[in-house]
Structures are given as C-alpha cells and as structure tokens.
C-alpha cells in the first residue's frame, strides 16, 4: 500500500505516455503493482527499486501496446500520419499547438519500439539518460544513440508539417 502510494504517479506517467488514455493507463498501473507484489521476492537488495518497478511497467506497456494498439490510432481517425501532414500543410496558418501535439504523438507511435520507449521516457516522463539506461538495462551510449535516431525519424515524419523537406 505504501509502495503504491509512493510510486503510483511515476508509473502512471509512464503508462499514460504510452497510451495517452487514462483508463488504459490506470489499468496498467494496477497491473504493474500486481506484478510487483508477485515478483517482490526476486528483487535484489540494494538495487534500484524505482528503476526495477518502471521496468516492469515498461514491459507491461510494450506487451499491451503490441496486443491492443498497433494500427488502432490510425483506425480511430481514419487518417494516416501522412494524410494528416498533407492536410495540415495546406492550412498552415490554422495550425494550433494542439494540432502539432496530435501530429507529434502520432509520429511517436510510428517509431520503432525501443526508440519510442526512450523518447517517451526522456520527454514525457522527463527521465535522465542514466535512469533510462538502468530501467531498460542498456548502456548510456545506446540510450543516446536511440534517442538521436528517434529525433531524426520524427524530424523526417513531421517535415512536411514544419514546412520543409525531411
């Protein structure tokens, strides 16, 4: 109960970043703590508990995302990101910050899994590279490299919207 109180918001930020859906995110928070209590005996003393917990949450999010999302976002609007870009580019003056956010989140969804996870952790969760490396159990260099690739790909995807070539 105390553990839940301490870490529920951090877990929620991560799960909400993946799905941007409150109900799904809360379900995943619950599932994360369920898994935590099941596996608590396997946690090594002196380890990074927060990192371990977020790792559980991240794994659950990826599994859930694979099962339930995928092409769901595109189906929801009936438009692909490319279609959105073209439509938006034609009415550039009318673009608002919320439109850009929508485009951005769609493009983040199109990123490769590891790039997306790192981008979400870095910018939505505002985690440091070191923390991300610990949670994902990868080197700091790999985190930086994947983050760079994620930005490059986003730049290419959002290029038409920004009024320049990608």
């Amino acid at each position: 109960m105390t553990l839940t109180r301490m870490y529920q918001k951090k877990v929620f930020v991560l799960t909400y970043s993946f799905f941007r859906n409150k109900e799904d995110a809360l379900d995943l928070v619950q599932e994360t703590f369920l898994r935590l209590y099941q596996k608590i005996n396997t946690f090594e003393k002196g380890g990074n508990f927060e990192g371990w917990l977020l790792q559980i949450a991240k794994n659950l999010c990826i599994d859930y995302y694979r099962k339930n999302y995928g092409k769901r976002r595109e189906l929801e609007s009936g438009k692909t990101v490319e279609e959105l870009n073209i439509a938006d580019a034609r009415a550039e003056e009318a673009h608002s910050a919320s439109d850009f956010k929508e485009i951005l989140t769609r493009c983040v969804d199109k990123l490769a899994e590891r790039q997306r996870t790192i981008f979400i952790m870095r910018h939505y969760n505002q985690m440091k590279n070191e923390e991300i490396a610990q949670v994902l159990n990868i080197s700091l260099g790999t985190v930086k490299s994947l983050h760079f690739k994620a930005i490059q790909n986003l730049r290419a995807l959002i290029g038409p919207y920004l009024g320049c070539e990608g």
């Binding site: 809360l26 928070v29 619950q30 369920l34 951005l104 939505y124």
Partner: peptide, 25 residues
C-alpha cells in the same frame, strides 16, 4: 512539443483520485 506533453499528463493526473487507487490495487 514533446516536453509540453508532460504538462498534458499533469492535467490528466489532477483528475485522478490518488488516495483511492492504492486501495483498489
């Protein structure tokens, strides 16, 4: 734009009853 999404998350978080969630879990 990516960083501003964090503010959106905070707005959503303000609508959640965090005291009830641990009990539910």
């Amino acid at each position: 734009g990516a960083d501003s999404l964090h503010d959106d998350i905070r707005k959503v978080m303000a609508t959640i009853d965090w005291d009830a969630l641990p009990g539910r879990i």
